[in-house]
Design a protein around this nucleic acid. Structure first.
Lengths: 219, 219
DNA sequence: TGTATCGGATACATGAGTGTATCGTAGAGC
DNA sequence: GCTCTACGATACACTCATGTATCCGATACA
């Protein structure tokens, strides 16, 4: 999906240049999260990155281009993080040592998105622009699908290891989990909770959904 | 909740003035949905409303003030729409004539939010600013809670009429329904579906949740 | 050590949006 | 029908962001 957003640029870039780009992207992530794409000035981004606008225009065409690239990076990072966790779980040989509770699933999913407040804001910012820009929209949906697939994988693994049964296909369970996770963390953030509390509340809500989704053995 | 956003203004306003304000608000709703709060210029709003900026500044202090008022109006309208439906359902004396399917619940909820693409965009726009502005955030959450309460009411009514049992409290069911509704309609809109298709897809997803939430009679 | 090149800083021109001060007019009240 | 005023239009001054053109310094290489 990311290639939808970032056509692989083959220009040989120096190490220094690469570092500058990274710093600018990092700074932009913060500023975009805090103020939003439109309200964020190029100036503000450069200031935070420790450069002047000259550096910016030497590295990016426009603010939009940078945003696009940032969105791609964020998507890649999230998906990679989830994938890595899946790999770890599988390498651990079938999750023998996870907690015995349905909550284990929840925590697995939650851990994956080890986000902070800013990350939640940034994702929301990307989301609304994805709603208006079809190119970004496609990328966003693709990332969403990949995440879902990976989470579904985890869920399947855990279910196998613990011989659980679900009331719907793993993919639907994953969708539901991710949906609830996103909207609940947004609501909790909105309520002004600190990040720890956000996690706690989201976790509780996810636990409820897990309870719902897992087929309870009928005595 | 709306009074959090709109302290009741007691100034006697002329009918003409009221109409102007309404036109400006309507226009702003469109422009905000299309471009977002920050990208929307006061000029663009006025142009769409058929006024010049003079009219704007005669009626509102700033663009932000207008946005706040608009957010309040939208919240009020949504809640009222749901409430009205609840009232109708209750007046109809216990839903004797609804379809016999679990989907009935879904449709009840869905019908309520007779939104179009622009409304979805506008709600998303309000949402992200609610994430950054605590005042807006409180209002947003309050509206969310009211919606949930009303939907829970509907759900309870339907459940009674059809002697259904749920796997979780009605309030949690309502939360889940609304969450899925919002995020699914956003995803569908993002995919570029027309409004009818958005509704269809959202409806399907909600049906799945309903299936999940309703306690199936064990044969 | 000299020089060429790349990357970033600085300075400046331009455009857009904002808010205010002032003006003109429609319509209510008498 | 006249007047007065509230409402909205117009014009203008100001700010601020953008993007470009130019300049400067460091690093690589001869």
């Amino acid at each position: 999906m990311t290639d939808t957003v970032n056509p692989p640029s083959n220009e040989p870039t120096s190490r220094r240049r690469e570092a500058t780009r990274r710093k600018l992207l990092d700074a932009a992530a913060q500023v975009f999260a805090e103020e939003g794409l439109d309200a964020a000035s190029v100036e503000a981004i450069c200031e935070r990155a420790g450069f002047t606008r000259g550096a910016f225009y030497s590295n990016f065409e426009t603010k939009d281009e940078l945003f696009l690239e940032l969105a791609g990076r964020v998507a890649r990072e999230r998906v990679d993080a989830v994938r890595e966790r899946v790999a770890i779980l599988e390498r651990e040989g079938g999750l023998h040592d996870v907690a015995t509770d349905a909550l284990a699933i929840v925590e697995q999913v939650l851990d994956v998105s080890g986000d902070d407040r800013l990350a939640i804001l940034l994702m929301s910012e990307i989301r609304i622009h994805a709603l208006r820009d079809s190119r970004l929209g496609a990328a966003y949906l693709a990332q969403d699908a990949e995440m879902r697939a990976s989470v579904a994988q985890i869920i399947t693994d855990i279910a196998l290891a613990k011989t659980l049964r679900f009331r719907m296909p793993a993919d639907d369970v994953a969708r539901l989990m991710l949906t609830v996770w996103e909207s609940e963390s947004v609501r909790a953030t909105m309520a002004g909770l600190d990040y720890e509390a956000v996690c706690r509340r989201t976790s509780e809500e996810l636990a409820r959904v897990a309870q719902l989704v897992i087929e309870q053995p009928q005595p």
